[in-house]
Design a protein around this nucleic acid. Sequence first.
RNA 1: GCGCCCGUAGCUCAAUUGGAUAGAGCACCGGCCUUCUAAGCCGGUGGUUGCAGGUUCAAGCCCUGCCGGGCGCGCCA
Length: 598
Amino acid sequence: MTTSLLATLRHALRGAFETAGFDPETVIVETSRRPELGQFQCNSAMQLAKTHRTKPRDIAERLVAALGAVPFITDLAIAGPGFVNFNLTDEFLAVRANDMAGDARLGFPKVEAPAKVVIDYGGPNVAKPMHVGHLRASIIGEALKRIMRFRGHDVVGDVHLGDWGLPIGMLIHELSLRQPGLPYFDAAKTEGFPEESPVTIDDLEEMYPAAVSRCRENDDDMQAARRKTAELQNGRPGYIALWRHFMQTSRASQAGDFDRLGVSFDLWRGESDVADLVQPLVRDLQARGIAEVDQGAILIRFKPAEDDGSEEEGEGDEEELTPLILVTSDGTVTYAATDLATIQDRVARLSPDLSLYVVDSRQGLHFRQVFEAAQRAGLNDGMGMEHIGFGTVNGPDGKPLKTRSGGVPRLGDLLDQANEEAGKRLAEHRLGLEFGEAERADIAHKVGLAAIKFADLNHQRTANYAFDLANFTRFEGKTGPYLLYTVVRLNSVLAKGGGVPADARFTAFSTQVERDLLIRIATLPEVLKRVEERRAPNVLCDFAYDLAQQINAFYHEVPVNQEPDPGRRAHLTLLVDVSARALTLVLELLGIEVPARM
RNA sequence: GCGCCCGUAGCUCAAUUGGAUAGAGCACCGGCCUUCUAAGCCGGUGGUUGCAGGUUCAAGCCCUGCCGGGCGCGCCA
């Protein structure tokens, strides 16, 4: 079992703390905020000063005295009120570096207690083309999945299709008006429906908005759609057959979109998969007095829980949530009920420790209600449930992104634009002119996607952000393309230098950039830990960018392939190799693919 | 009315959940290509962190009250 560099340091400091008579639990060690003062800093003295009622400076002196005994720590110094700064010896750094180079995971440890985690993301709806709204859910969910998996957790990605609610009823109704002669609408017919779908994906995408506006404008149509939804949910054969066609048709299109996005799922489950669980669940909830009938609907009320003595987390914040409707007065099952059934189903099938829902922040209330309800009914069986909300993607006007005609931009169109923009930039810079047509197209695709993904992930998850394609596809600055460029350039150095010699070893570090670069890479485990804890991919984006900048600084300062001494050249080549592997790994964790050349 | 999110450089965004001098990128100014991809590197200008109090060795971050913006709040998902 490997340990991270910082964990090793922490361990060493613990020992020193003990000999100095301080609580080893108070060890704080991190890479320096002020690199010119040292590689690492320990800020424990300020904390300890409180409990020991002494000056932080005195504590710092005692710490330094004890730390002096640690063989691989050097250049100990106290600064400011009691910050302790220090460096690692080059010998120690070389040993660590060689370990990293020789390991497929670059020496990055896995968590000691892996959890079983389901990540629910993507969430496309039947018949609705995927749009900008699905972009963040897909990109963020995919990144979290990869990061947690790399950390060693057992992660299952579930697309969780929206394939069972009123929208389907509206579609059925719409089609029944357009083509009433179809066999699906014959209530007497129970089997032998056509194999071939009566609609194409284009039909569906055209029909859906038409159906919605029809139902919105005319109450009779809405009633009819509700009725048909309830009938579908009660198993009317013709509607079931029709629904299967809708589902298969749109699923093929969704799979295509996800494929282009580089997003994949372990499970393609949906609301309809738990349809059979809903009725028994609702009955059970009613029987147990958790759900009740009110004005014809079945719902769960969240009265302020009368104190049973167990819960005493701030009495004032037990505020009243609005009721959660499970079944509407006309018998339609809502997505709240489906979500509860899904929790039950997940626990039964996978018994996860944690379920993450990567869904738009605007659904925050819904999830609070659902989680609370699941908790009360004991459906989650100890499984943690967490809504990973995210902000909207806005246009230049600060409002949710719209097309010129005012509609919601399609995901496919957005990707096309990014692709085109990336292609234009490549041409402007006269890059890849000697490559074939197909490779140029592939590069443009990867660059465009990297641009969009990095820009999305780089923003704080909970905040809204402005979608500015020209900005994202820029090749300068903190962008996806810059990161790709950095990796590709390193790989080019390796190729030109004939690769890493078999006997290459880190021997001695001679420039500051070399040390800084390696130390930076070695801190990735702590970064990933923070990313996971905060569910914040933007923290990893920050790391990726800092790393790329350090790589480029190194690139300029140290011309690897011109180094005359073979030993040093091997050492440098190895550093290039480790750097390229590290940055490639980080990009991979973000869901960003690197072209072989560009 | 209640609840959630946001307010940081001209613009777009960070800030290791309370640590040192609030950082990047665009934009602007000045350097660096006969040398591994200049999509790069090095340096510079730019700030009362929305406002006012409070908590402490230390506040962009925590507490209180305002101001401004976004979103949500029983039969849509």
